[in-house]
Amino acid sequence: MYNFTLWDILSNLLLAARWTVLLSVIAFVCGGIAGILVLLARVAPLRPLRTAMKLYIELFQGTPLLMQLFIVFFALPLTGIETSPWTAAAVALTLFTSAYLAEIWRGCVEAVPRGQWEASASLALSYGEQMRYVVLPQALRIAVPPTVGFSVQVVKGTAVTSIIGFVEVTKAGTMITNATFQPFLVYGLVGLIYFVLCYPLSLSAKALERKLNVAR
């Protein structure tokens, strides 16, 4: 029987961790772009649009990521789109991220004083111009720490994609455990890898928050 050294296990986990990182980045970037669109609709001066986006956010915040994954995984093929675990994972995590980021950013936009909207409206700026030149630059400043903080949730969210068969670090851990029978060591290392990925993000979110509080 082949004996697995610690290095065998760790190197394979690290190779799989690339996919965790890549999926996190894709979900965060695409989710961020989609999140901006959701946000713009969520605070638009058009009630049906606002209500629709409110429901969208409620839906993603009120249901498990696992169910969202399953629905994307099984529903996309019904519409004729070939779905690999990769696509399903990327699509589901993007939608999930967009809903949470839009809600976080809405709080930041609403923290911009009402008078700023009124002042810019009295200068005859359109909704788009108000957003672009007056509100978003101010909202962006306070949005950075919670956004960085949420990225930790995205990285941790990728673990659930192992359940639909996407081979990232958790799935690799399960596969390696099945070969080595050392679950304590392997899952310990998997946890450690996530910690190494997430802790710097948590720390920088906290540092950014502190800096912002001092600046005010």
């Binding site: 941790k156 673990a159 659930v160 958790t170 851990g173 679950p183 946890g191 996530y194 910690f195």
Partner: peptide, 18 residues
């Protein structure tokens, strides 16, 4: 707070028995 719940669950269920 910096590790996924799924990994915590697997660690407890599969890892602790050893």
């Amino acid at each position: 707070r910096n590790t996924p719940f799924l990994v915590q669950l697997f660690f407890i269920f599969f890892g602790l028995p050893s």
